[in-house]
Structure formats: C-alpha cells, structure tokens
C-alpha cells in the first residue's frame, strides 16, 4: 500500500505549474470515521495531496536529484468540505525555487468552486558526507511517476514533452534486467 493522495496529473509544466485530480470515494476508509455518519475528505489529506502535487513539481525542476521534503504549511484555508463523489483538482504554482528549497502556492477546486488555498514551503535536504541515502528507490519512484501519468502530460516551457531523467531510466532498466535474471 502506498501513500497516494492524488490520482493522476492532468497538467504539468516544468518549473511553473502542476495540476492533479483527486477523486473522493466512500470506498476510502478514512472517510468512514473522521466524523461518524458525516463522510468528508479530511482537510489534512487535501494538504497532503497538494504537497504531493507541489513536491513533484519542485523535485522535477532539478530532475529529481534533490531530496525534497515538505517543510512548512504557511497557509491553509478551506471554504467547504469535499464529500464522496466529489472530484478535486489541485493546482500547484511555483513561486520561487533555489538550491535551499521552494515556495509553492496551491489551490483545490471542485469544478469552478474554490475549495481550499494552501501555501507550502519545501526544503532540499542538504547532502552530507557518508549520507547520500535516497528518499525513494529510483526505479520504484519512476514507476510511481508513470502511474501518476506525469510523463503523459508533462511539458517543457516550450511545449515539448518532458523527458525522463537518465538516472531514473537506468535504475528502471537495471531493475528489469535483475527481474529477468530471476
């Protein structure tokens, strides 16, 4: 089981903006007991979904070579609660990015209705000697990006398709080769 709080990307322009869809379903267990008898999408998980949308926008800017972590939720206001059957679109817009981290402004919409406004700060974990551990296995990570259709919709700023970083492709090929051997 994975911690997925977006279903897939619908828009992704490198270094600028990303949009992802989250379909809220009563099949999700967390809706059953958050408020007993009143099923709503917990606001904290809307923040998590926007953090995933924005975090991948931040990570992609440096070809996923930086270790990106959510450092701070600067602002979160919610205008109504999302309920089972609702489809939310999370839009993350890059405000600033440098070697230390990034600031992202986010919104959640249901159709034309603004559901939430969430501003996030991400940090790039500094690399330390003898500690180059990855946050994710690169082959698994690429599988996740494919699942989220990032490279189906991803575009460079000139409109050309986004390319998959070589280090992720190599990890995927190495994993496939190892699987074949087994």
């Amino acid at each position: 089981m994975r911690w997925f709080w977006i279903d897939h990307f619908v828009e992704f322009e490198t270094g600028r903006t990303a949009a992802a869809v989250k379909n809220v379903s009563l099949a999700e267990e967390h809706l059953h007991d958050h408020f007993l008898g009143f099923a709503v999408m917990p606001s904290s998980l809307v923040i998590e979904g926007l953090a995933q949308t924005g975090g991948l926008l931040v990570g992609e800017h440096y070809q996923f070579n930086e270790r990106v972590v959510l450092a701070k939720v600067s602002r979160a206001s919610f205008h109504f609660m999302a309920r089972p059957g609702d489809s939310l679109t999370y839009q993350a817009t890059m405000q600033d990015i440098n070697e230390n981290g990034a600031m992202v402004a986010g919104t959640s919409h249901m159709g034309d209705r603004l559901q939430a406004e969430i501003d996030l700060v991400f940090a790039h974990l500094p690399s330390r000697e003898n500690d180059e551990r990855e946050l994710f296995d690169p082959a698994d990570f690429l599988a996740m990006l494919r699942l989220l259709r990032l490279y189906d919709v991803g575009r460079q700023s000139d409109g050309s398709p986004l390319t998959i970083p070589a280090h992720l492709l190599q990890a995927e090929q190495a994993m496939e080769a190892a699987t074949d051997l087994n």
């Binding site: 405000q95 600033d96 070697e99």
Partner: peptide, 21 residues
Amino acid sequence: SIDFLDIVFRLEKSFDIKIPR
C-alpha cells in the same frame, strides 16, 4: 529553524536580493 527558509524566500522576493545558504 525551518521558518528561516520561509523568511529567506520572502526577503529575497521583497527586496530583490539573493541570500546564499
């Protein structure tokens, strides 16, 4: 400590300066 990252971003933007890590 993490607020300093946020503050640095805001100061850079507000004053159009660069603050190295």
